[in-house]
Design a protein around this nucleic acid. Structure first.
Lengths: 358, 358
DNA sequence: TTGTAGGCGTTATCAA
DNA sequence: TTGATAACGCCTACAA
């Protein structure tokens, strides 16, 4: 036998085979599956029996081409491995499946270029897009949105329906929380510059810090990753602050690891706040974090998209999802004052300093 | 203006539009994209320029109907939010995209039922499947595999091509490592009972423990999650062991949190070993773990699938991916002996005991 | 209630 | 090198 790849391709039975065998027209076979109420009970049963015997299943691709409805949606995110996006995708995919839709997955690797390729490539097979934390310029998003319905998540383009996870107020609360603990000098460890969420969070922190008379340092990073959080620890300590608000939980975790590696205890020596709530309970000590219910956001986004697809009620163009600061165990009054330049000579993970709580 | 759902004006330009605009036939436009070498350089450039201007992209659904090739694959995993699967998906999706394939995403939520639904639903629009850590019975997998090509990951069904991440030897090494440190009584914290990986790991641990004369306790859990790891801490401590090999990093992290909450230091009081290497560097202290290069596994799986699809060389039916035990900072000689029943009265996360190394 | 005929967007075959 | 034309499998007016 010649090895011919495993495409043991047997041509599947088509609507014509069934029609011939059942001695009805192809239209009747079609109706027996898509509009059975238009047919007599007997005909439906006959056709289905024949189809069953022949092993016929309606061809989804052909149906999609004919009706224009693919029964698919696409979910495009900057990074699947980020727990926030993973949770969101999980919620979205489950909801879509419940509604009979299949979901394409797109990981843009945080780059606008790949995002653009994915959006283009997928547009013909998909009824609509859920575009999460897009790094694309507004104009380009609008161009894509001209081709297919879009729901934006965490990106604020006035012309398009969007779901905005409103972390601003919670970041403001977090700053107030730190201030009330006695912190006077804090840092915001920034996320991607192209991220709407990052701008919102930074703005909220800056405004509140100003209001309360706190000094604020902004620390730039390459990418919202554990490594980036870890890598900015020196800069953080050098800045002479006593607390950091990170762009997200992943970075917060990196910062905590960096601090631990420098024998600094959290929260006794340094306070840390994260965002998303995806990792918050898995760190030790548990992370004080802005909770976002990201899985729910994924579900809501799918609901919005499918409602629009089915031409339901006029949906609101911008939906805001509230968040909440959950205070766990990484924030406390500034303890040992961190002197600029101290303890910044690299990781020494041999010993974990004891940490006190309140 | 009446709000009529946003389906309005979302019709994409077709091959005919481009043909008309470029004053060539539709066949020529088609060739400009699929068989450019059959056309003159000028024609190709002209057509592509016009297409670009009009925003034309070949419709994959129509192409699929005509050629029988959908240009899509599906990736089905038990849990997107598990970092191991997320990394694997990331690698797979990127590779598929590079090869011009789009990827459907399926999350089975660790249940055979949902897995079955996804496989059925997706089969019509997909050229092949990558099924990761399937929880489905062998017979059912084979039925699905009759319709479409399958690549199995971490599931050993003799009739199907499969990619097996070979963690057995590394788990054996891990047990030897613990034994050499002086541990005499260890635990294996198990993963899903339907998981091939779990069986492989448990078998390797059991065999090696027996060989070295170590006493081994197997601890069952509900699901490979942080919470499950956390929840089994009491049982772990009650078992009187001095070290635990967890099914994966996520559970190991849960165990570490549980230990920390009971004022036990890792590795001074208790040693922990994980698996996957996805979280290993993000814990504190860094986790000793069996590294799996999961992103690479995703890429390899896609390569295998696409090779089969294109009828290339007869691929080997079973490919084994080696792993490696990476010793970091969570394993040390058994320090304070853990007395059964001690320190098991719930979390008291107020203080993190200092930990020693070596 | 059922059949006829045309179309969905592409590719493949055969000519030119 | 390019152009007609016929599939691909299904859906859906329109007719009967």
């Amino acid at each position: 036998m010649v090895t011919r790849s495993f495409r043991t391709s047997h041509s599947l039975p088509t609507i014509s085979h069934v029609a011939e065998e059942a001695k009805v027209s192809r239209a009747t076979v079609s109706r027996a599956f898509s509009q059975p109420h238009l047919l007599s009970r007997e005909t439906v049963e006959l056709v289905r029996a024949v189809a069953e015997r022949l092993g016929y299943v309606p061809n989804h691709t052909a149906r999609a081409l004919s009706t224009g409805r693919a029964g698919n949606i696409a979910l495009v995110v900057p990074d699947i491995t980020n727990a926030f996006f993973a949770s969101l995708m999980r919620g979205a995919q489950a909801k879509a499946r419940d509604q009979g839709y299949a979901t394409f997955l797109g990981d843009s690797d945080e780059t606008p270029e790949l995002e653009d390729i994915l959006l283009t490539r997928l547009s013909a097979q998909v009824e609509g897009f859920i575009l999460v934390s897009s790094r694309l310029p507004k104009e380009r998003i609008l161009e894509h949105a001209q081709r297919r319905p879009f729901i934006l998540v965490n990106r604020d383009v006035a012309q398009l329906p969007r779901l905005l996870i409103d972390t601003g107020p919670s970041y403001a609360t977090a700053v107030e929380h730190l201030a009330s603990l006695g912190h006077r000098s804090i840092a915001y460890v920034a996320g991607p510059i192209l991220s709407w969420s990052n701008r919102q969070r930074h703005a909220a922190v800056a405004k509140t810090a100003r209001k309360l008379g706190l000094s604020l340092v902004r620390i730039a990073t390459s990418r919202p990753s554990f490594e980036a959080g870890l890598a900015c620890t020196d800069e953080l300590l050098g800045a002479g602050v006593t607390a950091a608000l990170a762009f997200d939980d992943v970075m917060a975790q990196g910062i905590m690891a960096g601090l631990a590696g420098r024998e600094l205890a959290v929260p006794a020596d340094f306070s840390v706040v994260g965002c998303d709530g995806v990792l918050a309970t898995t760190t030790y000590p548990p992370l004080t974090s802005v909770e976002t219910r990201c899985a729910l956001a994924g579900e809501r986004a799918v609901e919005l998209l499918l409602e629009g697809l089915q031409g339901k009620a006029p949906r609101s163009r911008s939906i805001s999802l509230p968040t909440e600061l959950v205070i766990r165990a990484t924030t406390a009054p500034p303890g040992i004052s961190v002197r600029p330049g101290a303890n910044v000579d690299g990781p020494t993970p041999s010993r974990h300093a004891p940490m006190e709580r309140t």
